[in-house]
Amino acid sequence: MNINTVPHRRYNILTGEWVLVSPHRTKRPWQGKQEKRPQLDRTKYDEHCYLCPNNVRASGVKNPNYESTYSFINDFSALLSDTKKAEYNDGLLRAKSEKGICKVICFSSDHSLTLPLMDVMAIEKVIDLWQKEYLGLGAIEDINHVQIFENKGGMMGCSNPHPHGQIWAQSSIPREAEKKTRQQKSYWDKTGGSLLQDYLLQELDKKERIVVENKDFLALVPFWAIWPYEVMIIPKKHYQNIGQLSTDEKKNFAKIIKEITTRYDNLFLTSFPYSSGIHQAPTDGSEHEEWHFHMSFYPPLLRSATVKKFMVGYEMFADPQRDITAEYAAQALRDASNVHFSLDRLTVTEIVNADEIKVSETLTDETVNSTITKQ
């Protein structure tokens, strides 16, 4: 079977579910909705931003004058730490109370930055905070799962452009983590090995879906990817959670996060929207030796900076479906530059010309910034 031309289904080893792949549909014309290209905001400090240093949030609490990372309990938390245990049971109608803690993680004091525009050392500090929060929240009684995630861009429902992510820690184990625990545990019991580590070795052998790798991490488009340019970052060593990373491994984790997010932005010359999340072992007191932590990026852009693809129609009522193959997506990301387009003068010139803006042949930093801001 030629998986690059024939409609087929692919199996997700982490969830036990299938995705329909229809590579021939990439030839169809697009007459659907197209969004405006988002602008790159160069504002380092916004007096109206609830997340900038020294500003007062909607709750009336004032942020400290932080210089790098900063975390706090979400003022509008989806879960509350003082929720009492209770149940509702009325025949087929059932409900249980859910206890938890939701935190906001500010990546930087600079309002204008995103992960691809941060330096590696700054991203390392974000990872330091992720480690601290995962271990700290996970140690709390009744907190059995800690979910770290980021929604980047208004297209993904992000309510504030300041660089930040979230952590939701709760008493129950969510559905996605439960499925991945079951699949990894089944494989561990059968083979005595890590499911993702064995998958990683197979991908290293084939080299079809790998985007970038370094000494400690591999970034690839998974064989079973659902989102158009979905990427998974996997540590080469079998670690259950990010708290086990050494100093050198954290640096390489930061490097590969920066490289993937930079290639995302360069793919369509835009601040690439996505939802990313780190899946790691539950914090329910069990060892979970079967777990192999990983970070996933789910971006909706399909053909350009203005054409997106969300889960609708067939995907909502039947199975997930995608058009471009994982192999095609991996090649496109490999071909993208690892130098951010806003810092590449040649790329800026191309953007300027595309918008029919007349500038001098030699672009100054001021011209570059104003051009990108306009774009």
Rank of each mutant, 00 (worst) to 15 (best):
Q131M: 09
R37M: 09
R57M: 12
K84H: 13
K33N: 14
Y66T: 03
K33G: 07
Q39N: 13
K85L: 12
M121K: 15
K103D: 07
N54Q: 11
E87I: 11
C52V: 07
R57S: 11
I105A: 01
V61T: 14
R37Y: 05
G138N: 10
M118D: 10
G60M: 07
D82I: 02
S71V: 05
Y70W: 03
L51G: 11
I73L: 12
P116D: 05
F107E: 07
K44Y: 13
I127K: 02
P64G: 04
K85C: 03
A78N: 09
C49E: 07
E87M: 08
I127H: 04
P116N: 02
L117A: 14
K84A: 13
K44F: 13
L93Y: 14
A58K: 15
I101R: 00
K99W: 10
D41W: 12
C102W: 05
S59E: 14
V61I: 14
P116S: 02
A86C: 06
L40W: 14
H48S: 08
K125L: 05
E87Y: 06
N89C: 04
E67P: 00
D75H: 10
L93F: 13
L80Y: 10
K84W: 09
F107T: 05
S112R: 04
L93A: 04
P64W: 04
L79F: 05
N54V: 01
V61Q: 15
N74P: 00
I140R: 01
T43M: 08
A139S: 12
E133Q: 04
D46W: 13
S108K: 00
N63H: 08
V126K: 02
K44N: 12
P38V: 13
T43Q: 10
K125R: 14
L51R: 12
R94A: 06
Q34F: 12
M118W: 09
A95F: 11
Y134R: 00
V126H: 08
P116E: 00
S59T: 13
G136P: 01
A86L: 07
N65E: 11
N55Y: 03
N74H: 00
Y88F: 14
L117I: 07
P38T: 09
A58D: 13
S59V: 04
Q39Y: 08
M118S: 05
Q31T: 10
K125F: 02
C102Q: 10
I140G: 00
L92H: 02
K84V: 14
C52A: 10
Y66Q: 03
S109M: 07
K132Y: 09
D75S: 10
Q34V: 14
K36P: 15
L115M: 13
I140S: 02
G60Y: 13
Y88W: 14
K103S: 04
G138H: 08
L79M: 04
D46L: 11
E87C: 01
G60A: 06
S97V: 05
S77F: 01
L51P: 03
D110H: 05
I105C: 02
